[in-house]
Computed example of a mutant assay.
Amino acid sequence: MELSSIYRFPVKSAAGHALQRAEADALGLVGDRRWMVVAADSGRFLTQRVLPQMARIQPQWLGGDGLLLRAPGLPDLPVALPDRGAEARLVTIWGRQVSAPDAGNAAADWLGQALGRPCRLVFLPAEQGLQVDLDYASPGDKAAFSDGFPFLLIGQSSLDDLSARVGRTFDMIRFRPNLVVAGAAPFAEDDWRRIRIGDMTFRVAKPCSRCVIPTVDPVTGERAADGEPLATLMRYRKREGGVFFGQNLIADGPGVLDVGMPVERLE
């Protein structure tokens, strides 16, 4: 087995991009979901579940220089990392309130034009992080603005199996994983408990329950009228608690990941 793809999503629920190499820190891939769009009035996080057009926002992570926002019909907008004196905004993600630095009015105005509603952009500093659910993790295990866990892994054969059942090919990126593994049987990842990729080791925390986001075309931002591929997943991947596709991971420490690295099941 090998690591066949790596994906980073700089802004939660916006477009992502493939990488050949990625550094990982205590929150996941460096630059992954460190930014989040929230409603201007309530501070509640916004995603493609409600705003599928978020798929057309194409952010580029610029490291210490911040972020570059891109979207069709709008000028590119560089966004600096909020400094220590930036306004802290109280935001809500999955019922949890977090104080996060606001990225400023220029980013808010740009996103308002892109999404057609008042919103703000906030940033999560690397030293902050959100505690992972203690039902599946240890104290000190943290994530960024992802849906609860630092990493999401999917087997390429699992997607191939799903595509065959639907009768058309789906791109992996619509499922928004960080890590894709080739060379395993379909859904082999369901039975993994610990794995090694290169020099990094990971705990497999829990299966990933899926929402409607995989029905959104990552290029057009349009939701599939037939509800695919979620409709087919519901026929053969529904279990108590949801419809599952992929596995959430927690790394045992920081490291570097390269496409092509060997993947070993430890448990």
Results as ranks from 00 to 15, higher is better:
Ala18Thr: 09
Arg84Ala: 12
Glu267Trp: 08
Met234Asp: 00
Met234Ile: 02
Pro59Leu: 01
Ser138Leu: 08
Gly198Ala: 14
Asp135Gln: 14
Thr220Gly: 01
Ser157Gln: 05
Trp192Thr: 10
Arg34Asp: 06
Arg49Gly: 12
Asp226Asn: 06
Ile93Glu: 12
Ala15Lys: 03
Met261Tyr: 01
Arg265Thr: 07
Gly85Tyr: 13
Asp135Gly: 13
Lys206Tyr: 00
Gly255Phe: 04
Phe151His: 07
Met234Glu: 11
Leu90Ala: 14
Arg237Ser: 15
Ile195Glu: 11
Asp199His: 07
Pro52Ile: 13
Leu152Ser: 11
Val132His: 07
Ala164Gln: 08
Arg235Val: 01
Gly129Cys: 04
Ala103Met: 08
Gly242Asn: 02
Gln247Lys: 04
Ala100Gln: 03
Gly148Lys: 02
Phe123Cys: 04
Met234Gly: 09
Pro207Asp: 08
Gln156Tyr: 04
Thr47Leu: 01
Ile154Cys: 13
Arg203Leu: 09
Pro52Leu: 13
Ala143His: 14
Leu90Cys: 14
Ala108Glu: 07
Ala24Val: 14
Gly64Thr: 12
Arg237Gln: 10
Ala18Leu: 07
Pro59Arg: 03
Pro10Asp: 09
Leu179Ser: 09
Leu77Tyr: 12
Asn178Val: 11
Arg237Phe: 09
Val181Cys: 12
Arg223Trp: 06
Arg239Asp: 07
Gln48Glu: 01
Arg223Gln: 04
Ala185His: 03
Met1Ala: 15
Ala103Tyr: 01
Ile154Ala: 09
Leu134Pro: 09
Asn248Trp: 03
Leu249His: 07
Ala107Thr: 15
Ala26Tyr: 01
Ala224Tyr: 14
Tyr136Arg: 14
Ile173Gly: 00
Gln60Pro: 03
Cys119Ile: 15
Ala164Val: 00
Met172Asp: 02
Leu124Gln: 15
Thr169Gly: 05
Asp199Pro: 01
Leu81Asn: 00
Ala251Pro: 06
Gln53Cys: 04
Glu189Met: 06
Ala143Pro: 13
Pro72Ala: 01
